[in-house]
Design a protein around this nucleic acid. Sequence first.
DNA 1: GTTTTATATGTAAGTATTGACATATGGTTC
DNA 2: GAACCATATGTCAATACTTACATATAAAAC
Lengths: 186, 186
Amino acid sequence: MTTLGHVLLGLLARAPASGYDLAQKLKGPVDFFWQARHSQIYPELARLEQDGYVVVQHVPQTERPDKKIYRITDAGTTVLKAWVIAPVEVPVVRDELVLKAYCLWLAHPAAAIELFRAHAHHHTELLARYQRNQGWLLEQWATEGRRIDSPWFGSIASIQRGIGYEQEYAAWCRWMIEQLEQAISD
Amino acid sequence: MTTLGHVLLGLLARAPASGYDLAQKLKGPVDFFWQARHSQIYPELARLEQDGYVVVQHVPQTERPDKKIYRITDAGTTVLKAWVIAPVEVPVVRDELVLKAYCLWLAHPAAAIELFRAHAHHHTELLARYQRNQGWLLEQWATEGRRIDSPWFGSIASIQRGIGYEQEYAAWCRWMIEQLEQAISD
DNA sequence: GTTTTATATGTAAGTATTGACATATGGTTC
DNA sequence: GAACCATATGTCAATACTTACATATAAAAC
């Protein structure tokens, strides 16, 4: 099973959904640390169905194109539960901006600074979005007595990482800008 | 040009090196945010040579297998300098551990906690390594009067990101462990 | 003496992901 | 009336990366 397969099972374990629904959730940074396009999602769903981890229900619609609702099966839940506690490798980080920072000694500081201003802005925006999301998630979780076996806890755990990540990334960008500004003024 | 091509040019802009040397630098987390295997590096070097961005010098050796030393050309330096200040997309983060955290509501806390202890350990170790490296790099940079056009600055900038990243990741793992411990004791 | 390790360079098959192509419905905007 | 957008599902080619295969030298470990 691919990681994307587990991503899809992880989402379907919370609620049934169509391929389109899943693609919407995975298309960008919402509350979650995985991204995928529909072109990868549809074939993966077909594989999950073949393997018996999900079942599909065809839903005809009149005002919109027909859709297919996917539901996780008992077999799917079993493999998902086993996978969650299985050891996992540390992900490889490949960040082109850090690579550019590594090569920054070749550039004019004034030309390079815009690069880091743009990324500082982006990560600050995303941080604010995650923080708003976190506030709402914490409220939802509280209504369920802050149980660790609630899906809300999973969302909070991942958004917590998103907040830390964006905070740190934005701080690094600001540090880079400082260094560059100092070099420009000298 | 691929990103790996720029990685290799970025390294060769500092000093000539063989494919093996480059593979050593890129094989794991040393001072840098890019990883690649020799199986990807050798073909990429051949492409860079074809494009005229590097030249190769065959060096026969008696006590070891012969090697090929690659040097960046003026054309290579030109494209590298242009690339450094060019805008770049925000990298997509795909982290299986965060995904597991998202699905953690499906697992027994006692079974899941080992996962986060292992990763907390790993990121703490890597952080210490980066911090030792940083101390040495800062000394080297100081001897050159902390010039921003020194390669040392590039190394420091990337290690700075590595330190922030590992610090934050380790902190998140510890937060996850806390949550899980609390759930176990309840 | 045999195995292992470091040096040194490659190829080939398979997987993961992206970007483009492809089609169809119905509502909204211009 | 035409163009565009959201919904909805798919395929295909290309790229990026990993894993395994493949070979050769010489020193060091056992």
